[in-house]
Design a protein around this nucleic acid. Structure first.
Length: 278
DNA sequence: GTCCAGGCATGCA
DNA sequence: TGCATGCATGGA
């Protein structure tokens, strides 16, 4: 990977490629939007970001080298060799077709508490509405970071809210679940640093001590927030797809990278990519 | 009005 | 252990 500081921000090349639009808008992250000029804007760990594409390079606008290496390098998993992983997954013809079609969809390494809340909210919900709820939560209970943007609320803040205060932003029946997650995270009963170091099954069990967190939500947090590429979230779409495409079970080549395979299957078959924001 | 949405907790067999 | 049901909410 080459990193260059320019007048506009950090420009990176030779990083292994990315389908930026799909990576940021394939149902794993909920705070990115596409601007009129084609760049993407989002809020990550309390930092406002704009990312543009040019000639296969990515430009992190208004960002310095230090911020890039501390925040964006891990967020996009630039230390992960997607070329190698995708060539392994391509041993399966169906996945090879998806990878050919969509390019490199990266699994983001998001802030764990925000990821946990986001996927608690995702239960029995649709993606546009999940985004709306998270935006309203941030606007009402998150810290303002300038430009009319707001950080995702802290666990401490959410832990102090009443269910009615969360109902007011449209969380519905998940309000109590979010408060339980916030209390456990704020008290340290849920220690993401520790969970990250556990074997996947134990990590999953500890996430499932939170009300409103079952197998699927736990797997999403493991995959999209804690770096477990072997977590395989099975939602109603993936259940159908897996039965349809792999009635005999997942192919051997998927082992250890179930989560990445899952995201290609989701994009290909859940139909979401057809509806995503242009 | 009805149906559906990246589920989960609960009660009952 | 396995299955049905209710859960808030808004858009189609």
């Amino acid at each position: 990977m080459t990193i260059k500081e320019t007048d506009f921000g950090v420009r990176i090349s030779d990083f292994g490629g990315i389908n930026l639009g799909l990576t940021l808008d394939c149902g794993q992250a909920f705070r990115w939007r596409r601007l009129a000029d084609g760049a993407f804007a989002g809020v990550v760990k309390g930092k406002a970001a704009r990312i543009a594409e040019g000639g296969g390079d990515l430009i992190f606008l208004g960002c310095g080298k230090e911020e890039f290496s501390e925040l964006w390098h891990p967020y996009f998993g630039f230390d992960t060799d997607y070329g190698r992983i995708l060539s392994i997954l391509s041993r399966n013809p169906f996945l090879a077709g998806c990878i050919e079609k969509y390019g490199v969809i990266r699994i983001l390494r998001q802030e764990p508490f925000e990821t946990l809340c986001s996927f608690i909210i995702s239960a029995c919900n649709n993606i546009p509405r999940i985004k709306g709820i998270i935006e309203r939560m941030s606007k009402k209970y998150g810290e303002e970071i300038g430009g009319g943007l707001f950080a995702f609320p802290s666990a401490e803040t959410l832990a102090g809210l009443s269910e009615d205060e969360l109902l007011a932003v449209g969380t519905g029946f998940r309000a109590g679940y979010i408060i339980d997650a916030a209390k456990k995270a704020a008290s340290g009963e849920l220690d993401f640093g520790l969970i990250k170091s556990l074997p996947v099954e134990e990590a999953k069990k500890s996430l499932m001590t939170v009300r409103g967190v079952g197998e699927k939500v736990a797997d999403c947090v493991l995959l999209f927030g804690l770096g477990f590429m072997n977590a395989y979230p099975v939602d109603r779409h993936i259940k159908r797809i897996t039965a349809e495409v792999y009635p005999g079970g997942l192919p051997e080549c998927v082992k250890n990278y179930e989560g990445i395979a899952q995201q290609y299957l989701f994009v290909e078959k859940a139909g979401f990519y057809k509806n995503r924001i242009s």
